[in-house]
Design a protein around this nucleic acid. Structure first.
Ligand SMILES: [Mn+2]
Ligand SMILES: [Mn+2]
Ligand SMILES: [Zn+2]
Ligand SMILES: [Zn+2]
Lengths: 143, 143
DNA sequence: AGGAAGATGCAACTTTGTTGCAAAATATTT
DNA sequence: AAATATTTTGCAACAAAGTTGCATCTTCCT
């Protein structure tokens, strides 16, 4: 995995630094999305808050991660699995936010359906966020 | 219109106060969505910031307005046109955010398509936000 | 190893949102 | 139309979230 991380950074022409490696590790270990706050907690006192902000910003621009709009307007990020590039993202999958455990996941196998807009509107990107109870919470009868 | 506003408030068992009337006026005058900041600007120095927050919160709870998730995670609100009630909203329409002019509108005539989730997931709410260029901006060749 | 380019931490600041409480406005009762 | 009860508001103080400039430290390249 260490290998993978280095490759991701190199492929994106980014220098390999402690914070970038650590934050990428977190994303790869996690199968869901992470908020800025999550990352701060899990990196402990290791990095400055500002560095985390800047690292996420760089990852976003490079198309390494994408942000997820949520109903409660907290900012979440998840790894891009498709071949997103600088500027152009195309993660056209649905996101699921669990009301119970708070976990948010990319549903890579569920693609956002096409819709028809009224005349004159030009569609560029479509985001679809579903909330409810996740597999785990639904099975566990709501913990 | 003054009549309508009073009615909306009464119907929802809310006392009629300056801030509530003024903020409802803004929503009725606007055909798009408003951010907290917009409202503060347009009410001038008339109301305290806290009052605006609390008014929006009350309107949300009563189902007078609904919030719109956006990709850049700014909080937007728009009038509910359906018969949303306290607790239960059902504005299952698509929202459109214009990349050019920043305007956000409810597309009441475009309903969010049904999707099928992987086994075990329980869907409660679906949000769909489209971004691109709005009718006005697309026609005006991007201002 | 040395130097240029880039990343980080710190401090200071802005913006956004929250809470408790007394004063003011609104609704209700007499 | 008062008087009273109930809500709402503004203020102050605070907390959280995000931004910027700049000096210092790291990384990368030769
Ligand atoms: Mn995703
Ligand atoms: Mn809407
Ligand atoms: Zn869950
Ligand atoms: Zn527009």
């Amino acid at each position: 995995m260490q290998e993978t991380i280095q490759n991701i950074l190199k492929k994106n022409l980014l220098s390999i630094t402690g914070s970038r490696v650590k934050i990428l590790e977190l994303f790869l270990a996690q199968n869901g999305a992470l908020a800025h706050g999550d990352i701060e907690k899990r990196t402990g006192e290791k990095f400055d808050r500002v560095t985390v902000y800047r690292t996420l910003q760089v990852f976003l621009n490079k198309g390494i991660i994408h942000s997820i709009p949520t109903a409660d307007n907290s900012v979440l990020y998840a790894l891009c699995k498709d071949d997103c590039a600088e500027g152009h993202h195309h993660d056209n999958h649905v996101h699921f936010v669990c009301d119970n455990c708070g976990n948010t996941v990319c549903m890579d196998e569920v693609t956002v359906p096409l819709i028809k807009l009224p005349n004159g509107y030009e569609m560029r990107q479509v985001e679809m966020v579903v909330s409810g109870r996740c597999k785990v919470c639904a099975a566990g009868k709501g913990v």
